[in-house]
Design a protein around this nucleic acid. Structure first.
Lengths: 191, 191
DNA sequence: CCTACCGATCGGTAGG
DNA sequence: CCTACCGATCGGTAGG
């Protein structure tokens, strides 16, 4: 039973927020999970909202790192494939952070929420750019509505953790490939 | 300022739950929205959890009615199209109920949550059957993983209210058509 | 549907 | 990180 670090507290908060929601989590709940008192959490962080901010910004960084890596891949269709695989990997490797990032943004204080919204828009723009490049390279139909396509793709990706099980019939790598094929075909490409 | 009906209370609860979440909503908040005291709500309903149940079951019924109507359409691809259009219409015509149904199920008491989960599975099975029929009629590729396909489709549909605006660039009917084409092509069909 | 409340729990603090 | 609290708010009730 060694002392907890600030990161331990944030990780614990992420798990609770992901399963019970921000407003469904009390500082005492959180303390119970961590084996300390609720009031002891204030030795590490300023308050509950600060924990939400830390969890969500951690989630945002994972997604952004993944998108940057995807842009380094050669060829537009390879980038699309890497973007999809990267997003799924982030969601499944950081389920709690990712779920909180995706579901609890609305409970951020208005200022912080606006900043996170901007970061999400920027992330979506990465995908839009990749799809644009796919159209340009002739991988996708010229009449594709790239904005809608990016929303469809992110919708599929963002809900993956709600149903996917690592021990299920479909393996993670197969899922990434299948989503890639589905999106590519959906936009008029041939894998 | 006439007296409120039970349905008024449930509708108000739906709106609050959809925007602030179940745990982010107090009975006093709800009363404020309705112009009465929080404690006055207990004249109409047994408690907060009962309101959540009512909103969510109302949402479930809308989706199920839409699915049944889709199954009445002639031809598998027509059914798929009707299912998609119907789902989008339910979401946009009953935003608060639908959003609560989709996001707050986890806060239902365990027994009720299990029942709702069953209803959701049944709804998904409607789509699986339609997709199976599409494969059988040769509208879709024979090697399609219909389970995954239904999940992808519902993922796109379930997040529509998060970004769609009635006053936006894309109109509702266009969206339904575009999603239909995207899904059909994604599964190897040609619209 | 309001008045007047209840015990429980909330986020958070002072001091160690 | 605990002890010992604080005022505020929570879901809910009795009685009208």
């Amino acid at each position: 039973m060694k002392r907890l670090s600030k990161d331990d507290i944030i990780a614990g908060a992420g798990r609770r927020f992901a399963t019970h929601g921000y407003h469904g989590t009390s500082m005492r709940d959180l303390g119970d999970d961590l084996g300390i008192l609720g009031s002891s959490i204030y030795a590490h962080v300023g308050g509950k909202q600060e924990l939400l901010v830390a969890v969500i910004e951690g989630g945002a960084e994972h997604f952004e790192a993944s998108a940057r890596a995807a842009l380094d891949v050669e060829g537009a269709s390879g980038q699309l494939r890497a973007f999809i695989k990267g997003h799924i990997d982030v969601i499944l490797d950081h389920r709690a952070e990712a779920r909180t990032y995706l579901s609890e943004v609305g409970f951020l204080d208005p200022d912080r929420r606006a900043i996170v919204a901007q970061r999400r828009d920027r992330y979506e723009m990465y995908l839009v750019e990749i799809l644009d490049a796919c159209v340009l390279e002739g991988v996708l139909r010229k009449d594709v509505d790239v904005r809608l396509a990016s929303i469809y793709t992110l919708s599929i990706l963002n809900l993956v953790d709600r149903w996917f099980s690592e021990s299920g019939r479909v393996k993670r790598a197969e899922l990434s490939e299948d989503v890639y094929r589905f999106v590519l075909r959906g936009l008029g490409g041939t894998p």
